[in-house]
Amino acid sequence: MYLDVRDMRRFYEQRIGLVVRQLVGQRIQALWPDIRGMRLLSLGFTTPYLRPYLRQAERIVVAMPAQQGVIAWPPEGPSRTTLVDEGNLPLPDACIDRALLVHTLDLSNDSLAVLREVWRVLVPGGRLLAVVPNRRSLWSQFETTPFGYGRPFSRGQLSAFLRQTRFVPAAAEGALYVPPFRSRLVLRSARGWERVGHRLWPAFAGVLVVEAEKQLYQTIPKEPEKAAARLLRPVFVTDVPPRGTAGTSRHGRTSPSE
């Protein structure tokens, strides 16, 4: 179940939201440092992380699910946002180079349909970057942040989920080792938490940032039984009567000897 877009915006305007924006944004930019000339699709609530790509990408499509609602972005210039049906994106096949999903797979009622649709619009070899709450973290347990709603993932679960929809995981990072508390003291030390946590307890990151590549497979015939029927079948020597003797046909009639 998606949260209301106004609640999302309100969270990211608070002090804790600004910390999340900074720490998660660093991981996203570490995996995608340069997307110049590429077409970027973002799905969910992604606007806190798109500013670095605004002047890089050839085009940015900020798709917000209808269940969540939509806001205009960026504040300056023409808006890049659009309201969409997450399972039926208004885009042609193979037209997008990169896809960023934040607050999407964990909140959607049909995450498999979302991934299949993203796979459809990506070019061959296109890349997906998904940000999801980590099942082992405190962030997935507290409903004071958007990461405490919906479905959290372990790294293995997310990798299996991506492979099920013909994506190949390529890289994974963790972010948000700071506890999900609004204490000013805790938030001021967020960078220190991030450095120590990344080294000492990487499995307990608040969110997982996973990159995957669109994989193409050889097509399978629509009617495999007909294709199999065209294959030659072996004939065993024991099925042929000896030369000079009478044999019995498959229908019980005696065949003349040679």
Rank of each mutant, 00 (worst) to 15 (best):
R233M: 12
L41A: 06
L122F: 13
L101H: 06
A205M: 06
G156E: 15
I96D: 14
P221M: 08
S154P: 02
R127Y: 12
Q56S: 08
L40N: 07
Q22T: 03
Q22D: 14
T165Q: 13
L101W: 13
L91D: 09
L40C: 08
G174K: 01
I96C: 13
R136F: 15
S111K: 05
L50K: 01
R10S: 14
A94C: 12
I28R: 00
R184F: 12
R6V: 09
R59D: 13
A57V: 01
L128C: 05
G25E: 06
P133S: 06
L100C: 08
V235C: 05
V131F: 07
L187H: 03
C95L: 10
P179Q: 03
P124H: 03
L138T: 00
Y49P: 04
P92G: 04
T47H: 05
P133Y: 14
R151D: 04
P224K: 00
I28Y: 05
A72G: 11
F236L: 09
L129H: 03
R39K: 06
T46L: 07
E223K: 00
V114S: 04
G156Q: 09
Y217W: 11
H251N: 07
V209T: 00
A212V: 02
E117R: 02
W119F: 09
A113M: 13
R182P: 10
A57Q: 04
V118H: 08
F45S: 04
T145I: 01
P202L: 10
V5N: 04
T219D: 15
G37V: 02
I35L: 15
T238E: 14
A66H: 08
T104L: 10
R27T: 02
P90K: 02
S137N: 03
G174F: 10
S249Q: 08
I220F: 13
V186Y: 05
Q14A: 14
E194Q: 06
T81G: 05
N88L: 13
T238G: 03
R59G: 05
G77D: 13
T238D: 14
T81Y: 05
Q68D: 05
P48F: 04
